[in-house]
């Protein structure tokens, strides 16, 4: 009993001193420094890339000193809530939550400060109640399917592997619909946990002519499994982000994560310069890139030239990410 109270007492004491210390350091800071709170829901290289793009662009463009407060919630909803409260307590001037779920929570809790939801897909109606601006990082599945069709006009059977994660369901529906209009039958395979991926990779329909993965954190983290299957079957593995290409997908049509951060920073900049948040339209990503992994393409028996030809036709930049370390894509 005494022990518990000793623990608690010590903890509270430490807390008091910690809070006190911060107060003195804060008052020494330049008064004009702008505080920006970045909330990262889960550890992922893509999140770090977005953050880097955001921080670097904003630091370069704004003349004032900026203090970035980066909060990493590690996939814990309670922790994330505490972190937003903590940012609020620190008197942050602008919130930059990354990903949809994080943006929703910030918007629900913060009403008196602007929020830039980076890589967040939310209906316009949600922007009304809080000062919310959005950067939508999604390229539509239709764009990807059309690109695939342009490269491989003869393919009629694709398998789409996706998880039950955030945002996936409507995209999957769209991919299926897009496939139908182009005469491609899209075979849907959902996973709920990483181990499912192996069983799905083993039980692909023999008729399938390619595996498609959208921007889907869970599936992407297990992309190597699908890469093996694609190599065995000599079919292309196509994805929608650079990280998956580094780890064994053949090629991807997507957006550079860094660029998403850049777009977010531009919105933040406008807000900080006084543009009313409500007047800023949701930003869509326009600069698309084709990421390629030449090793993986060879293993999957795919022709690089056809991809390059189509990319050039659509003015997509080709980025070779073969055996580049993660996080070095600027």
């Amino acid at each position: 009993m005494k022990y518990i109270f000793t623990c608690l007492g010590l903890f509270s004491l430490l807390l008091l001193t910690a809070c006190g210390n911060k107060h003195t350091t804060a008052s020494n800071d330049e008064p004009k420094s702008i505080k920006i709170g970045i909330i990262i829901p889960i550890e992922h290289p893509a999140m770090d890339e977005i953050t880097r793009g955001f921080e670097e662009t904003l630091t370069a463009d704004l003349k004032q000193p900026i203090e970035f407060q980066v909060m990493r919630a590690q996939g814990d909803v309670n922790l994330q809530r505490s972190m937003i409260l903590q940012l609020q307590n620190k008197g942050v001037d602008l919130y930059a939550p990354i990903a949809t779920q994080t943006t929703e929570m910030t918007a629900a809790m913060i009403h008196d400060r602007p929020i830039v939801g980076v890589a967040a897909l939310l209906p316009e109606s949600t922007r009304a109640k809080s000062q919310l601006a959005l950067v939508d990082d999604e390229i539509t599945p239709t764009q990807i399917i059309q690109f695939i069709h342009a490269i491989y006009p003869a393919k009629t059977q694709l398998t789409l592997v996706y998880s039950n994660n955030d945002k996936m369901a409507p995209q999957v529906d769209e991919a299926v619909a897009a496939g139908k209009t182009l005469g491609i039958q899209v075979d849907k395979r959902m996973i709920t946990a990483l181990p499912d991926l192996y069983s799905i990779a083993q039980s692909l329909s023999p008729q399938t002519q390619g595996i498609l993965v959208l921007k889907d954190v869970l599936v992407v983290s297990g992309i190597a499994t699908l890469s093996q299957t694609a190599s065995q079957k000599h079919i292309p593995l196509i994805s929608a982000d650079d990280g998956s290409v580094q780890n064994g997908s053949g090629f991807a049509l997507g957006v550079k994560e860094y660029q998403i951060g850049v777009e977010g920073a531009k919105v933040a900049e406008q807000i900080l310069q006084g543009t009313p948040v409500a007047t800023i339209p949701t930003v869509q990503m326009t600069k698309l890139s084709v990421f390629i992994n030449t090793k993986a393409l060879t293993a999957q028996g795919q022709d690089l030239a056809a991809i390059e030809k189509e990319a050039a036709k659509d003015h997509y930049a080709i980025v070779d990410v073969t055996s580049k370390p993660v996080g070095d894509l600027k």
């Binding site: 629900a108 949600t126 809080s130 945002k167």
Partner: peptide, 10 residues
């Protein structure tokens, strides 16, 4: 839910 995340903001 029909989807993994339902927004209640508005």
């Amino acid at each position: 839910m029909g989807r993994p995340n339902i927004n209640l903001l508005s």
